[in-house]
């Protein structure tokens, strides 16, 4: 095995895993405050398509980035309003957001499918993704604001009784998660591919969701998990390079099978799940009157 091949593989793993890190760390913060957002896939697609269209129309990377972020703020803001103020079911609302995002991005991107663009170097985003994981880790464990986020996710009634604004905190974490997902999408359509194609996130939103559970809500484990998941996905082409003949579909299944195995393994240990899972996850919060 030569050294160049190994470096090449590592390089591909780095490039392909970054969207998982972005979407995963955003969802981790959202879930830490007690909200489950299943809309990642939809948020990513809309973030990808708005960034792409803006770049094609204006040719300006900065504008395209900003618009992609704004799409995440708007969509996750709607999600937050629905689940926090109108107290809709978080799972149903999240699924609706994904279905909505898939449809909306396909409609918007129809004319732009196949348009060639000059992509952005992925390495800025890779560096940012690492910094992001460490800052989120620091924020959650060392700052008072991070402590409030955890407290709200642990017991929202107590947090309110101590004088904290549960709804406001959750707005913040949901929108943070939304923006991270659109950044993940932006990265896919501008740096990783770079192009637009319907449904191009290919289920990465779902893997990011599984990743948060896999990481038992800990940022550094999320980073490790993301690279394991990303590595499995990349194995496909490289094993073929070594002459291992397996149908491609088997490899496409790998991340999901790995996710399943990990989920079963994690939930078999009740105690660990209870200690790390936010107790108020997916429980609607009704303000006292």
């Amino acid at each position: 095995m030569n050294i160049e091949l190994i470096i090449g593989i590592l390089n591909i793993v780095l490039i392909s895993t970054t969207p998982l890190v972005f979407a995963g760390i955003g969802e981790l913060v959202t879930e830490k405050s007690g909200v489950l957002n299943l809309g990642l896939e939809g948020l990513m697609l809309v973030g990808a398509v708005t960034g792409f269209i803006t770049l094609v129309l204006t040719g300006n990377y900065f504008y395209s980035l900003i618009l992609s972020i704004i799409s995440g703020v708007i969509l996750s803001g709607i999600f937050a309003f629905l689940v926090l103020n109108l107290m809709t079911n978080q799972i149903a609302t999240g699924l609706a957001l994904t279905i909505f995002g898939i449809g909306l991005s396909a409609m918007l991107g129809k004319k732009f499918s196949g348009t060639p663009i000059e992509g952005l170097s992925p390495y800025y985003f890779i560096v940012i993704s690492f910094l992001l994981v460490f800052s989120v880790g620091y924020f959650l464990s060392k700052t008072k604001s991070g402590l409030i986020v955890r407290a709200v996710g642990e017991n929202h009634n107590s947090a309110y009784a101590l004088g904290y604004n549960v709804i406001k905190t959750r707005y913040f974490t949901i929108i943070f998660g939304g923006v991270m997902s659109s950044l993940a999408g932006y990265y896919i359509s501008i740096c990783y591919a770079p192009m637009w194609q319907e449904g191009m996130t290919a289920g990465r939103g779902w893997i990011a969701l599984a990743l948060v559970v896999f990481a038992t809500w800990k940022p550094w484990r999320l980073l490790v998990g993301a690279y394991i998941f990303g590595g499995v996905a990349i194995m496909q082409m490289n094993l073929q390079a070594f002459g291992v003949e397996l149908p491609g579909q088997i490899f496409n299944m790998m991340p999901y099978i790995a996710t399943l195995i990990v989920l079963v393994f994690i939930s078999s240990n009740k105690v660990r799940l209870k200690l790390s899972a936010p107790s108020c996850l997916n429980i609607p919060y009704e303000k006292n009157s």
Binding site: K144, L147, I148, R150, A151, E154, N155, N157, S158, A159, A161, L162, G163, Y164, L275, S276, S279
Partner: peptide
């Protein structure tokens, strides 16, 4: 200030973290 009948403590946090959460100042 109020001491609740059903305590308003956070089970998975430490004593220090619970104290900090209850304080008005940083």
């Amino acid at each position: 200030n109020m001491v609740f009948q059903h305590f308003s403590l956070f089970e998975s946090l430490t004593v220090a973290e619970n104290l900090i959460l209850g304080m008005n100042e940083n």
